[in-house]
Design a protein around this nucleic acid. Sequence first.
DNA 1: CTAATTTAATTAGGAATACTAACTTTGCCT
DNA 2: AGGCAAAGTTAGTATTCCTAATTAAATTAG
Lengths: 201, 201
Amino acid sequence: MNKSIFDPEYQQHDLSSKIIAGLERISQAFKVLLWERAKNLGISPIQIQILIFVAHHRIALNNVSLLAQEFNVSKPTISDAVRVLHEKGLIVKDHSHSDNRSYSIFLSDEGKKIVAGTEDFATPMANMLQHISKGDQESLFSAISKLIYQLNQQDILTVQRTCFACRFYEQGGEEHYCRLLKKRLKHSDIRLDCHEFEAKL
Amino acid sequence: MNKSIFDPEYQQHDLSSKIIAGLERISQAFKVLLWERAKNLGISPIQIQILIFVAHHRIALNNVSLLAQEFNVSKPTISDAVRVLHEKGLIVKDHSHSDNRSYSIFLSDEGKKIVAGTEDFATPMANMLQHISKGDQESLFSAISKLIYQLNQQDILTVQRTCFACRFYEQGGEEHYCRLLKKRLKHSDIRLDCHEFEAKL
DNA sequence: CTAATTTAATTAGGAATACTAACTTTGCCT
DNA sequence: AGGCAAAGTTAGTATTCCTAATTAAATTAG
């Protein structure tokens, strides 16, 4: 008997296989949406991802090494993509850092325009969630955030700035508390990518 | 104000953005798991995906054109990957079909071995679901299956063999019914990839 | 029943995505 | 000062992915 997640017969007998197979299809959808946008703008998927990331994160995270970790690719892959973005004039390299081996990446005005035209690539997907009730959205988010924490714990997603892995986070049963904001958090307040994140010691 | 799904600040005020951002991270995890397995076996991601798909679907679906639709890439991309798989002796081409332009792809014995060693690439993810209650799994699956149906309706996922899009499916309120199996379906009985699927007229 | 169109697959040519290994420069630590 | 580690690049290669053009077979239209 075949116990593969990707065997449709097996899926009928195991709900978790079905969920994983479903998430895999949703993965495909992200790929499709990103490529679609990429083709229209004459810019490649990883290049778009870098631009969008840089647009929304603090300077300290925007260098070759950390981007490589973020996107789970090697440094040469990022280095190459960054070179192309620089040639296209979409980014600026800032060497004014204490460590002269490294530099930070900023968007140029042209780069900002590209981001404005691409960062909504996933909105068709967000719109579909309107068909799901608020309550179901909350339990969906709860499941997703736990799953991501697990993925992080098992080093499948190496970089993650979630509350669960943050040193300011405190749990008591079903209660969540942030020691930095000094307040209780509902599950839907849990952040997947917090600006104030600091890893546990 | 920045309304991007990928802006962590905006995510705090909009749960659906957070869900989408989370699903995007999970997408990344699939990519990581697939690449990991690929590197170990000296075979590339798309090649693995083709082998796994062929292993679990009927002959009629296993040709260049349909694989291209399934994976949302162009026919030359599949043609090329298939050529390499053939050179590696992992597949067999079967031209015994009424249409002489086309052929079906089968796994060789060697190909079956590769599938056996790769098709579990997503099991680490399935295992994580054990931390989630049965009830939450059901509502998670319910949300995912609806989302996939929407993605299919909007032509983001062009190929999909779900109950919702099948001509044997009948809905009455919250009830699901399959006219082929002649039975009522619980939401967790809904299939994402049914062998008996036939598109609505 | 031939001619035109469509479809399946491949070929050709090119940009981008990945990798590993080797290298340069800089920083850090003893 | 010497040695090791880290940031980024360069070089070389396989693969992924595209579009456009080609070949051959099947279908449709007149």
